[in-house]
């Protein structure tokens, strides 16, 4: 199953900040039932979108050596709905990073208007030494995630 809630990056500054976007389409599966005749993007999936934006930022800053696990939603606040036709933008800033984990702060935009704040904490799990009985390979940063970053960098190289 494809579990990627961002379409791409528009900015990626290693170890510092990243901006990703997600275009909402009336045909999107998650909007079919949420809610019938009143499609709005579930805020929980917007938190996931921010987690993916910030999570890739965290993972890349340590060369994807560890699995980066969303450990805690420190703060999440939304002031408006996002609906089909909107572009959601996630701006994530890496606040702190070390061997145990990382924290990020982030703003959410509906088109150009800021509508929310999502601050997160991540935990690092080294695939070689994890004690949580997780898979022994990097199961977080699959090819699909890496591709998003590669696509951004390819676009930057061409521009």
């Amino acid at each position: 199953m494809r579990w990627i809630w961002i379409d791409g990056f528009t900015e990626f500054v290693s170890g510092k900040r990243a901006t990703a976007f997600k275009n909402l389409d009336a045909a999107d599966e998650q909007l079919q039932e949420h809610f019938p005749e009143y499609p709005v993007m579930p805020p929980s999936l917007m938190i996931e979108g921010m987690a993916q934006t910030a999570g890739i930022l965290v993972g890349e800053s340590r060369q994807f050596r560890e699995n980066v696990i969303l450990a805690k939603i420190r703060n999440a606040r939304f002031e408006a709905y996002c609906t089909p036709g909107d572009t959601i933008r996630y701006e994530a800033i890496l606040e702190s990073l070390d061997e145990s984990g990382a924290t990020s702060s982030g703003k959410v935009f509906r088109n150009e208007k800021e509508i929310g704040q999502v601050d997160l904490m991540f935990s690092h799990v080294d695939p070689a030494t994890n004690q949580l009985d997780l898979p022994d390979h990097n199961f977080v940063f699959t090819d699909q995630f890496i591709q998003l970053l590669d696509d951004y960098r390819a676009g930057q190289a061409l521009s």
């Binding site: 805690k72 420190r74 606040e95 702190s96 070390d98 924290t103 904490m121 935990s123």
Partner: peptide, 21 residues
């Protein structure tokens, strides 16, 4: 348990100190 790591991160920021894990 996960709050302990959060507290450590926040203390580091609030007091501008480094707390070895």
């Amino acid at each position: 348990s996960i709050d302990f790591l959060d507290i450590v991160f926040r203390l580091e920021k609030a007091f501008s100190i480094k707390i070895p894990r």
